[in-house]
């Protein structure tokens, strides 16, 4: 598999479903998710790994999908925002975002949700500074940071009811 190629067949699991797609090697994971797999939840913004609007979960960790070539995601498990709801019900975290008013224009929210989702998986009771640092790679120009932090805290309570 080490002959240089320009087109590469990849297989990845996206939101629990196995997907096989042939990709151009210079296309990013973000490109393929949005354009080839029809999952437009991950957004395009800065394309330099600063804003986090393109955040997805790759093998259990958040990454900026604009900085991952699709070919690098071969054989990986990807979760996008479309994969957070459980059987069409909003996850406790999604519901918490709505309830605390953490959503304004919404463009950064898929990335925020995924970063929060993984943060809580690794650290079920994060402090406020841990939340702020954990989500610092997700910019929100509407300025919902305080409500987003509250939503993450609320989601931790919810998980224990």
């Amino acid at each position: 598999m080490s002959e240089p190629a320009r087109v590469f067949p990849i297989e990845l699991t996206v939101n629990g479903h196995r997907r096989a797609v042939e990709v151009a090697v210079h296309h990013t994971l973000l490109d393929v998710l949005r354009d080839d797999l029809g999952l437009t939840g991950a957004k395009e913004c800065c394309l330099v790994g600063e804003c986090g609007a393109c955040t997805v979960v790759l093998d259990g960790r958040t990454v900026d999908s604009c900085l991952v070539l699709a070919v690098e995601a071969d054989g990986t498990e990807i979760t996008t925002v479309e994969g957070l709801a459980v059987d069409r019900d909003l996850s406790p975290l999604q519901q918490a975002f709505l309830d605390t008013g953490a959503v304004q224009c919404g463009f950064c929210i898929p990335g925020q949700l995924l970063s929060a989702h993984v943060l809580l998986a690794d650290n079920p009771h994060p402090s406020v500074p841990e939340i702020q640092e954990g989500l610092a790679g997700n910019l929100c120009r509407c300025g919902c940071y305080q409500q987003i932090t509250e939503a993450v805290l609320a989601a931790t309570d919810r998980a224990h009811r």
């Binding site: 999952l39 437009t40 939840g41 996008t80 925002v81 479309e82 909003l90 709505l98 008013g101 919404g106």
Partner: peptide, 21 residues
């Protein structure tokens, strides 16, 4: 009162369509 945002569900599920989508 402060009911949840109308249009919020689409934004937390990623199904809300912006122009680029």
């Amino acid at each position: 009162t402060s009911p949840n945002r109308v249009g919020g569900i689409g934004r937390v599920t990623g199904l809300n369509e912006y122009v680029a989508d």
